[in-house]
Design a binder for these strands. Structure first.
Lengths: 391, 391
DNA sequence: CCCAATTAGTTTGATGCCTGAACTTATCGA
DNA sequence: TCGATAAGTTCAGGCATCAAACTAATTGGG
């Protein structure tokens, strides 16, 4: 029960600053008066809060509002495009990716570099890649408010506990690279990117089949992390308890039965491109391979839907490309196994984002972190009350 | 993003009142000075908050502290045993139960009444039962701060969406009985009771096998409710996708494979008492029936453990009685199917509470609700600022 | 027996943030 | 040009916390 901190006026400030900033982010092109109405705060309070946010360059004043009828026009305030940017880095098994986004979430720069990261040299390489991305931001003349790193593994409070495909165990990136980051699992970041920039669903499971099967679960517009940050590990859900052995030691795990490798094997395809063209030409073997995988995926996902009561499934990664063939059999299996479909159907949608979802989520999480607690950013990045505004 | 309310000084007050009260509940026999140290608030603030709580009879001053060394002795403050009590009602299929607890969680009165509740007369019966329980509280001279009702079904924001065993669908108890209640699923209340009065684990799945298989999931000392309150519905998790058909239409659901009915059938026993004596005498059929069920339970629970990252399983209800025979095979299956057991083992423990867990949770939830927001209780039950203190 | 040291709890003035109301600024329509 | 309407600012007032001074109670040593 201990763990809650005492509250004071500063708490009120933090809360209201975040509230106002959230309203600004939500409704682009709102005036101070509109914000007051949206948040329930007084015009006076909104004004003082907005002034602070402008001083920190998190928010910028725009054109006067266009409106019919009498009365003074409000001045529009919106997220400042020159405010703190978010830098995302993704450490894949065979590539590094970076992404720079401005406070509104718009991508300003992007880069991918292929290289085998299963060597001890990764850290040097990441460090150089990060330096380069920072230079890029500098060239654009924008400040970097923080760095988010996506890794294909289990992350617990900033520490990479286990990343089998990278051969990592208990790796502290902050320590290795001499800097602090927002580190998280790539599937989680991808789910967040989907939340912020994709289909506007508030609750969903984002499932992506790459080498493993990763899922990010979003409940009430927030990532579900579980107790130790390992929430949503669906790769080894048992979907065929008497099935073939999986590398993890158990039998018939989802990853073993519906992973990319198994689908390609069943379809007799070399690559995903191969598989897709086979599917497009109506190849029976390919279609039945995907249908079989969809069934297993349905068993696994029905579990998630029943247990967490999430009303939607978003297909990302490789599954997004296979969506036309996965969708029907998956939906059928879900309807069979989820009792609540009787009164509220489960939606299955294809991710609107491509392969860059994870990096984009990593970059976006930096922005979201600042938006969620602007006062914190303000005090850490704007140390003295410098009124250095050109006015 | 909208949905957050503006904060003011009153918010601070609410927060700190709850903080202080929480500290009082946690550490029985603390002084104001101790509370200041525990909460991080000033002695002055603690004093004013405690004075308000005493005025509302949520807290009472006790004996002077016993301590060695110099200095004035503090006056101990603790939850007032004459403060608002919680009344819990459980609507079972064939019984009604009530439970009255004082602010410290001690049971002050209890009653069970057997009757078939699958008739339209239930509501009258519940109403009468509730009236009787209220009279009991009156006889004890204690105020009732609220009523919690446990039902064997799916509850969504106070509405009983579905209770198959009672034949209910979209039943609004508040409307039927002309009163407002805290309504929730019995499994969830049982899990909360386990949290508050049982093994002091902060994160666990409480699973109880009665007629169906219900689970309450507690994460970080809070109930996990899912999006629409249907979180933790594990009865129809697929544990043997090619197994025998279940009443829900799917195949090999957990309830079908490891429910009480199936265990009794496999063991050839008439009742749970029967089964237990067979197990105690080492009957092979009985032991293997329970072992088989444990395996299926392990498959289902491994899902929960993997997905939610919960490190402990609490066996309640009928499973608590079978724990000596369930434990080993269940643990083995979990270890096989949960990758994270490699670095942090899953605990399997037997519920410390008996059959009354759900009612007790219902009653306790009333108390917890008041403790979590004492200012709210104070303003609703102590309308005018009456300084009706004998002083 | 008295006094210094120590700890509990209260009183008081200062601070900070929000609010409400009055006020200034801006725009439309007649 | 004036009245109505709406945006945004200014300022006194309220309220909850905090820091520090102060009172109260208790021990132990001279």
């Amino acid at each position: 029960m201990i763990g809650t901190r005492p509250a004071g006026q500063h708490t009120v400030r933090q809360h209201n600053a975040a509230l106002v900033l959230g309203a600004i982010a939500d409704g682009p092109g709102t005036s101070r008066a509109g914000l007051a109405a949206a948040t329930g705060l007084t015009k006076a309070t909104v004004s003082t809060v907005v002034d602070r946010l402008i001083a920190a360059d998190l928010v910028a004043e725009g054109e006067p509002e266009q409106r019919v009828g009498p009365g003074r026009r409000g001045t529009v305030v919106s997220l400042s495009p020159t405010g703190p940017h978010g830098l995302g880095i993704e450490i894949g098994v065979d590539y590094l990716a970076s992404c720079l986004v401005d406070p509104t979430g718009t991508v300003r720069a992007q880069e991918v570099r292929y290289a085998d990261n299963r060597t001890p040299r990764v850290f040097q390489r990441v460090s150089a890649f990060l330096r380069k991305a920072r230079k890029q931001a500098e060239a654009l003349g924008v400040p970097v408010g923080g760095v988010g790193i996506a890794v294909p593994g289990l992350v617990e409070s900033g520490l990479v506990r286990l990343a089998p495909n990278l051969g990592w165990r208990d790796v502290d990136l902050a320590d290795r690279l001499g800097e602090t980051f927002t580190v998280a699992n790539e599937a989680n970041f991808a789910a967040l990117a989907e939340l912020w920039h994709g289909s506007a669903l508030p609750d969903f499971v984002h499932v992506s089949g790459e080498i493993g099967i990763g899922a990010g679960i979003v409940l009430d517009r927030a990532l579900f992390e579980g107790v130790r940050g390992a929430g949503g590990e669906i790769g080894h859900l048992p979907v065929a308890p008497d099935g073939p052995p999986c590398s993890c030691g158990a039998n018939g795990c989802l990853e073993r039965m519906a992973g990319q490798e198994e689908i390609l094997r069943l379809a007799g395809a070399e690559s995903v491109d191969d598989l897709v063209s086979a599917l497009e030409s109506g190849d029976d073997t390919a279609v039945s391979a995907v249908t079989t995988a969809a069934g297993h995926l349905g068993v696994g996902l029905s579990t998630v839907v029943n247990l967490m009561d999430v009303p939607a499934v978003v297909l990302g990664g490789t599954y997004a490309r296979l969506e036309p063939w996965l969708r029907e059999p998956l939906l059928a299996e879900l309807e069979r196994r989820v009792p609540s479909t009787a009164w509220s159907p489960v939606r299955v949608v294809r991710s609107a984002l491509g392969t860059g979802a994870a990096v984009r989520g990593a970059a976006g999480s930096v922005i979201r972190g600042i938006l969620a607690d602007p006062e914190h950013y303000l005090t850490t990045h704007w140390p003295s009350d410098q009124d250095a505004q050109g006015h």
